[in-house]
Design a protein around this nucleic acid. Structure first.
Lengths: 196, 196
DNA sequence: CGATTCTTTGAAAACAGTCAATCTGTGTGG
DNA sequence: CCACACAGATTGACTGTTTTCAAAGAATCG
């Protein structure tokens, strides 16, 4: 719909590292454009994940079922974010996660073999990925802190502050499952905040 | 007390990558042995962290204060684990965390400049670090899932399963602060489990 | 439209937190 | 070596928050 997916990706990269045309020529052909309709799965629990995904447009969610069969959202990936399951990839194990599309989504997919080829051929790309992973770890720890130390209301307010671009983009019940509260509680909190 | 700290570290590395004597000769001199007494701080909120720490013996905890001044433990680092705050290091920002010693602890410290020198000189070391960070990210996401989807009792049982080596090593109130429950609740859960 | 899914609301129950007191264990100084 | 002090752990009673269950309203999609 909007611009070319690969142009989005190229911009993402060049916003982070300097990239010659030759390097882009190595990177570009290995990625395939994939489109998902809303509600369509990219990955389902038990499958093995062998790729890397980059969202160019739309929104994916990665979620997991707890022992009572309740969905808990681990991550939302909107445009210019990564998606997939590096744990399944690294360990060669079946994934614990489900990934589906919250909106119609366009992403780029690459097989891990090609991804590693690129990492070897373009060191700056490799370094960029390392930094991204480190940043994701930092964010994860921030989220752990929020999850173990905030009340339901604080969790919601914190989410509004840190992800204003997601608040009105994902359905509330998914947001609740991301925060670790029930949809009913989220609804009541929102009402309470609105009344102030 | 036990073996030489640097020997512990060398074994940690050689358990993960193959390492020549020459490479070890590059790595070894940059690390300084540091001993901490129980309760002593390695890092306090507001300071900048410029190093990497590797625990050879003992136990450190990294914790954070929430807006009510309550401590919440983000991480325990026992021997053969890393300690520090890569977020402060990467971003150059004052740290949000406190790190102190749960037991008398021996660790190795290295300045980030030297660490980067080693990463450049010994590619396998660099790759090892990348894998470790990725694994920590995977564990973080596991913990997020536990934090947002488990009851207090499930959190405790999950901790016993995943960290049996820590259960009887860290004080209960710190364990509670790690799980995101109060010491009283943890105490009651333990009693309840014991009665079954 | 009609069906389905999502959101909100209400009432009751379960769960975890708070506050205060007691108990336990450990380490220190006399 | 004992007694004391102190921190940590447990227990009880109570409070408050969040969940659960059920139903009614919205919104969305074919």
């Amino acid at each position: 719909m909007l611009s070319d997916p690969k142009a989005v990706f190229r911009k993402y990269i060049t916003d982070r590292i300097s990239l010659s045309d030759q390097e882009w020529a190595i990177i570009e052909p290995a990625w395939a454009v994939k489109k998902l309709r809303k509600h369509q799965y990219l990955l389902q629990e038990g499958e093995k994940w062998l790729h890397h995904g980059f969202v160019c447009e739309g929104c994916l969610r990665r979620y997991r079922l707890n022992n009572r069969g309740i969905e808990h959202t681990i991550q939302f990936s909107i445009e210019n974010n990564w998606a997939g399951d590096r744990e399944s990839l690294m360990e060669g194990t079946p994934t614990k996660y489900n990934i589906d599309a919250v909106e119609d989504t366009t992403l780029l997919l690459i097989h891990n073999n090609d991804f590693e080829m690129i990492s070897r051929s373009v060191p700056a790309f490799h370094e960029m990925i390392n930094i991204i992973i480190q940043q994701r770890l930092n964010l994860s720890q921030e989220r752990i802190h929020a999850a173990i130390s905030f009340t339901a209301e604080e969790k919601y307010r914190h989410f509004i502050e840190t992800s204003p671009n997601l608040v009105n983009r994902v359905p509330r019940h998914m947001l609740a499952s991301y925060l670790g509260i029930t949809p009913e509680t989220l609804s009541r909190i929102r009402k309470q905040i609105a009344e102030k």
